[in-house]
Structures are given as C-alpha cells and as structure tokens.
C-alpha cells in the first residue's frame, strides 16, 4: 500500500472552491489517472467524489491520486446485461489500500477471483460516462 498523494489540478469549475467535481474526475479517468478524495478529518478515502466525507460529514476533503494496483474484494460475472451492454463481463469491487473502487475487469467471465491482484489499465465508456477498467497483475 502506498501513500496517496496530493494532486495539483485546476479549479475552473466556477463553484468557488477546489472540491473535485465529477467532470474533473471523469476527464482524469479518461486520461489514465484515477482520482479520489481524502477526508482531512477522518482520513476516509473514496474513489467516488462527493461534496462531503461519506463517513464523517466533514467538508474539508482534498483530491488525491489513488493507487493503480489493488486486490479484488468481490467480483461477479454479469451474464444478463442491461440494454446497451454486451455480456459476459466481470464487475468487481477493488480494494486499493486506501479506498475501494467499482470497476470493470478486462476479459470475459471468470478472469479474476476474490483476493487476486489487479491493476488499473484505462477507462471504458458507456452512455457518455467513463468507468475504470482493471486487469490481472502480471506474475
């Protein structure tokens, strides 16, 4: 587990503070960077940016760059997908040391199991929204 690091970024969203927006998170993800937030009060790290900390409610939350490697917390192979998706594919909760992210696993069914090491590769697109994609870590 490595320390999360502060990330410099522009705050031109006009909302008068430097809180990470979804637009910025999505743009970074598309460019290959997985951003999150860290609460300055309780230390909770999330991969799903919010307006306040989901654990303690504090509004002092800074933007951090998340680890790109982690361990599968849980995983399922979706065989009956929603409209606009093609099955089969795996969706997993990935523990990143600090923070946990929901991600698509690159490959078909049964590519990874709980406890497997996985690494962030890129973003996929659905309905104009990106989702992080992970793949098994080599070796």
């Amino acid at each position: 587990m490595s320390e999360t690091e502060e990330v410099e970024r522009s705050s031109d969203d006009g909302d008068g503070d430097d809180r990470l927006t979804y637009r910025e998170w999505a743009a970074a993800l598309r460019e290959g960077t997985l951003l999150g937030q860290e609460c300055s009060k309780c230390g909770h790290v999330t991969a799903a940016p919010k307006a306040a900390c989901a654990q303690c409610g504090d509004r002092e939350i800074s933007t951090t760059k998340l680890d790109t490697e982690g361990e599968v917390h849980s995983v399922t192979t979706i065989a009956v997908p929603p409209e606009r998706f093609e099955g089969d594919y795996q969706v997993a909760l990935v523990d990143l040391g600090a923070g946990r992210v929901l991600a698509r696993i690159d490959g078909g069914r049964e590519t990874v199991e709980i406890g497997d090491r996985v690494q962030f590769t890129n973003a996929m697109e659905a309905d104009g929204h990106p989702a992080p994609v992970f793949e098994p870590t080599e070796g």
């Binding site: 979804y22 999505a26 991969a47 799903a48 399922t76 979706i78 009956v80 997908p81 929603p82 998706f85 594919y89 969706v91 929901l102 991600a103 698509r104 996929m124 697109e125 659905a126 309905d127 929204h129 990106p130 989702a131 992080p132």
Partner: peptide, 12 residues
C-alpha cells in the same frame, strides 16, 4: 456516475 457505466446490474 460511479456504478452504472461499468454495466453493473441489480443481480450484480
């Protein structure tokens, strides 16, 4: 934003 784009379903 953080779940639907992955193709997560409710059975999922």
């Amino acid at each position: 934003q953080y779940e639907q784009p992955s193709g997560l379903t409710f059975p999922g």
